[in-house]
């Protein structure tokens, strides 16, 4: 069993078979993370680059650890300390590292579609670690994995995605992934932060958070992406917290065994109240662990087998 493509660029184009295969493989690999010796020899001799044009803690680190746990060699380029500051183009940077023998490039970039462009010009596999306001497929998969592990299924669940939908690639990947797997997705946030076309993706949009949370099995809270926003989308973070913030009182409307998720990093006290973020329904730290398992699964599925069809 292998994935249909050499790249993982988004969940919009990924089949449910491939998503299922990634989730099942992650299920098997997760156990390695809790071993005393966290290393299997599977990807010995494979080289993986993380190329990040935007800041990141958990995505970049978890890709690097996933590679290391599978014995791949991992190299990082933080663009602020690379030739990118001298004006090198994305194409030249990517070609340079490819001829050094990279088997895979994991990229985060502020421009939507940049990973698709990279995948076209490189023979190496490309993984999208977040492209602009478009997709963040590994986050979508790890959220689905977390829900599936806790609830035993995705089909038929009501998932509320709350917050800054407009700027969120996490929201888009979650919507595409979850709806394909048969979950019911609803979104909520201030109308300035909900894109007008959103219901075309097969979700219901609300401007009152309470309506989305009501009866939800899962509440996924998104970060207010202040660095991407223009001014004037909402009056103040204090007012945002009061009207749209996810807190104990609003969560009382969800199902009794609801899950509370957040992709991180959190603005505590703004989109999510601190007590619920650390509460018993929260899966926020578990999501981080699961992120490593999902990325190990994708590395295995893209780099583990032969790439040449005649190699056998």
């Amino acid at each position: 069993m292998r994935l249909a493509s050499k790249d993982v660029l988004g969940l919009q184009d990924m089949s449910t078979t491939d998503m299922q295969l990634i989730l099942d493989t992650a299920e098997s690999l997760k156990e390695i993370i809790s071993r005393p010796i966290k290393k299997v020899p599977t990807l010995r001799g494979k080289t993986v680059l993380t190329l990040f044009y935007e800041p990141s803690t958990r995505t970049r680190t978890s890709f690097e650890l996933a590679g290391k746990y599978m014995s791949a060699d991992t190299v990082n380029i933080a663009t602020t300390t690379s030739s990118v500051v001298k004006g090198e183009t994305l194409r030249d940077t990517a070609k340079t590292v490819e001829v050094m023998g990279m088997d895979m490039v994991i990229m985060r970039h502020p421009i939507s579609g940049s990973c698709h462009y990279l995948a076209k010009i490189l023979d190496a596999s490309v993984i999208n670690a977040g492209d602009g306001m478009h997709e963040h497929p590994t986050q979508g998969l790890l959220d689905m994995f977390t829900i599936r592990q806790r609830k035993g299924r995705l089909k038929g669940l009501r998932v509320a995605i709350v917050g800054d939908i407009y700027h969120s690639r996490v929201a888009r990947s979650n919507i595409w992934g979850l709806t394909k797997m048969g979950a019911e997705v609803v979104v909520a946030g201030p109308s300035t932060l909900i894109p007008p076309y959103i219901e075309e993706l097969g979700v219901k949009a609300y401007t009152r958070v309470e309506e989305a949370i009501e009866g939800a099995d899962v509440v996924n809270v998104l970060r207010l992406q202040l660095e991407r926003q223009q001014k004037g989308l909402f009056p103040s973070t204090r007012e945002y917290a009061r009207i749209f913030g996810v807190n104990q009182e609003r969560l009382a409307l969800a199902k009794v065994d609801y899950l509370l998720m957040h992709p991180g990093p959190m603005n505590r006290g703004v989109e999510i109240a601190s007590d619920v973020a650390d509460g018993e329904h929260s899966t926020i730290t578990e999501q981080v662990t699961n992120g490593v398992a999902i990325r190990m699964a994708i590395l295995y599925l893209l780099l583990g087998g032969a790439t040449d069809e005649t190699a056998d």
């Binding site: 069993m1 098997s28 020899p41 599978m70 295995y300 583990g304 087998g305 040449d308 190699a311 056998d312």
Partner: peptide, 23 residues
């Protein structure tokens, strides 16, 4: 024990084996 991750023919097989859990 699932030995998939330790196989010596992983890089030469085109029918990539599915990994199962070690327990």
């Amino acid at each position: 024990l699932d030995i998939t991750l330790y196989r010596d023919d992983l890089t030469t097989r085109t029918d990539q084996p599915v990994v199962h859990r070690t327990e």
